[in-house]
Design a protein around this nucleic acid. Structure first.
Lengths: 254, 254
DNA sequence: GCCGAACCGGACGGGGTGTTCCATGTGAAC
DNA sequence: GTTCACATGGAACACCCCGTCCGGTTCGGC
C-alpha cells in the first residue's frame, strides 16, 4: 500500500526564522471553540489562525496556498521564498502572511499531513503479524517518502523545535517505532544489537542521498534500504537487491 | 529556464554561481611560469589568481582568508556568505574577491587539500595487502572526514562541475576506489552484488547524518559505517559495533 | 627616504527575503 | 440593498547579500 507523498531538501532556513515566531508561540491551538471572535483587526498577526470558519474566499485562498506550498516545497525544497509561494498561488504576500503568520507556520501546516502519514506507516507496520516484515516495510516506505519529497525531509530532520504539534507527531511515531523494534527483536527478525537510534540514523542517512531526478532518488533509496536491512536483519535473506543506480557524482568517471 | 543540469540540483549555491565563473574557466592553471606579470590594474578580476608571488601583506591576507574559510565552512557548511568569511578574516570584501573572484573559487581552493587527502586515503587502502581491510578502512576514514567537515561534504557531493581540478581529483579517487572494490570482491571479502555506485551511495548517505556536535557526528558516522560494512561484507564478522549515538531528533521522546 | 605599483577596506547600486501597512474590495448577515 | 467586518494585493520596511568602484594606505625596490 502506497501512501501519497512528496520530497525534501537539506539545510537552512533554521537561521531565517522570523522574530515573530516567538510571538506566535503563546497562542493556543485554535481548537473548535465556537463564538471565539476576537475583534482585533489585522496587522501583526491578530489571531494565530482561525479554524475552519473563514469567509468562503479566504478559505479558498488558504487551501490554494497550502496546495501550492506542498507542491513547490516538494520540488524545490524548503528554501523557496514566501513570495514565490504567494506568486504561484496567485495571492498577495499579505494574504499568505495573514493565514500563516510565519514561514515556519506554513511549513508546519503544509507537512502536517505527511507527518501523519509517517506515523500511519509505522502503525501499519505495528499491525503486521510479522514484526520484522512490519519494520522493514515501514522503514522502506518512510525512506521512499523522504526520497520523493525534499521539503519533507528538511522539515523532518531540521525540525523546528517551535512547531509543537510537529514534534508531537514525530514523537508519537518514534514511540511506535520503538515498540515495533522491540517486537522485531523479540521475534528474532531484528539483530539484538540494533537500537532505535540506529533506525533513525538510517532514515537520516537516507535523506543524504541526492540524485538527478525524483525517480532516480527513489530507486537509489530502495537500493540503500535493501542494503540497510541486510545489516540489521538477524537472518539476512541474501536475495537479490533492487537494481543499482548511477549517481550524479559518477558522471565524472564516464 | 532549465538548469544547466549535471548533479543532483538540491539547491545550495547552485543559484549563487557568479557570472564570472565562466570567465575564470578559460584561464590556465597558474603554474610556475615566472615572469608572468600582466600589468592590468585591478577591478573586475584582472588575472584569475597570481601564484605565490604576492606582496607580503597580500600573501598574509590570502593565507588568513583560506584558513578562516576552511574553519567556517567546516562549522557551518558551505552556505556562509562571502562577507562573513571576509569579516572573520578581518578583511574587506574587495580583498576577498580580488583573491578569489568567485565563491566557487574560494571553496575549491579551501578544500583542495582535503580532496587530495581523500584520494590518498583510497590509495592507502589500495596498498593494503588485504583488499577488504583496505576498502573498509578507506570507507570509514572518508566517512569520518565528511562527518567532521560539513562544508567538505557539501563541496564533495554538490560538486561544482566548473571546478575542473576538483572534479579531476574526485574522478581519480573514484577510479582507485573502483579498483579497490574489484580486488576486494576477488579476494572474497566483498559481496559480489555490490558495485561502485553502492559505495558512493553509502558515502553520500553518510553525509545526511546530522548531530548536535562534531564529536557526536563522528561517533554516529562510525556506527553507521560499521552497520554498512556488515551489509556489504561477504562474511560479516558479527563483532561488536561502535557505540550507538543519541541523535537530535530523539530529544522529543525523552 | 622616495615613489610607484600593489594592495586595502568602506561604500555603492542592484537584488532578494521575511514581514507589515494601508487603501481598496467583497462576502454575507440583516 | 445596506452595511461592515473581514479579506485583499501592492507598496514599503528593514535587513542581508553580492560583486564592484574608488580614494587612501602600504610594501618594497631604488
Amino acid at each position: 500500500m502506497e501512501h501519497p507523498v512528496r520530497f525534501g531538501e537539506t539545510s537552512v532556513m533554521t537561521e531565517q526564522l522570523s522574530p515573530a515566531s516567538l510571538a506566535s508561540q503563546g497562542a493556543e491551538h485554535p481548537g473548535e471553540h465556537p463564538g471565539e471572535h476576537p475583534g482585533e483587526h489585522q496587522g501583526a498577526h491578530p489571531a494565530p489562525l482561525p479554524a475552519h470558519e473563514l469567509r468562503s474566499d479566504a478559505r479558498d485562498n488558504r487551501d490554494r496556498i497550502l496546495q501550492v506550498a506542498r507542491k513547490v516545497f516538494a520540488e524545490k525544497g524548503i528554501d523557496v521564498s514566501m513570495r514565490e509561494v504567494a506568486r504561484r498561488a496567485e495571492v498577495g504576500p499579505a494574504t499568505l502572511y495573514r493565514r500563516f503568520p510565519t514561514k515556519e507556520a506554513l511549513v508546519t501546516e503544509a507537512f502536517r499531513e505527511q507527518m501523519a502519514i509517517c506515523t500511519a506507516i509505522v502503525d501499519d507496520g505495528l499491525a503486521d503479524p510479522d514484526p520484522w516484515r512490519g519494520l522493514s516495510g515501514a522503514i522502506e516506505q518512510v525512506c521512499v517518502m523522504h526520497a520523493q519529497d525534499r521539503g519533507f525531509t528538511a522539515a523532518f530532520v531540521s525540525a523546528f523545535p517551535q512547531a509543537v504539534d510537529f514534534a508531537q507527531e514525530r514523537s508519537r511515531a518514534l514511540r511506535s517505532l520503538a515498540e515495533l523494534i522491540r517486537r522485531a527483536k523479540e521475534s528474532g527478525g531484528l539483530r539484538r544489537d540494533v537500537v532505535l537510534d540506529d533506525v533513525v540514523l538510517l532514515i537520516m542517512a537516507n535523506s543524504g542521498i541526492r540524485a538527478t531526478s525524483r525517480q532516480a532518488a527513489v530507486a537509489a533509496s530502495r537500493r540503500f534500504v535493501a542494503l540497510q536491512l541486510r545489516s540489521i536483519s538477524a537472518r539476512p535473506d541474501d536475495g537479490p537487491l533492487p537494481p543499482a543506480v548511477r549517481l550524479p557524482l559518477m558522471a565524472a568517471i564516464h
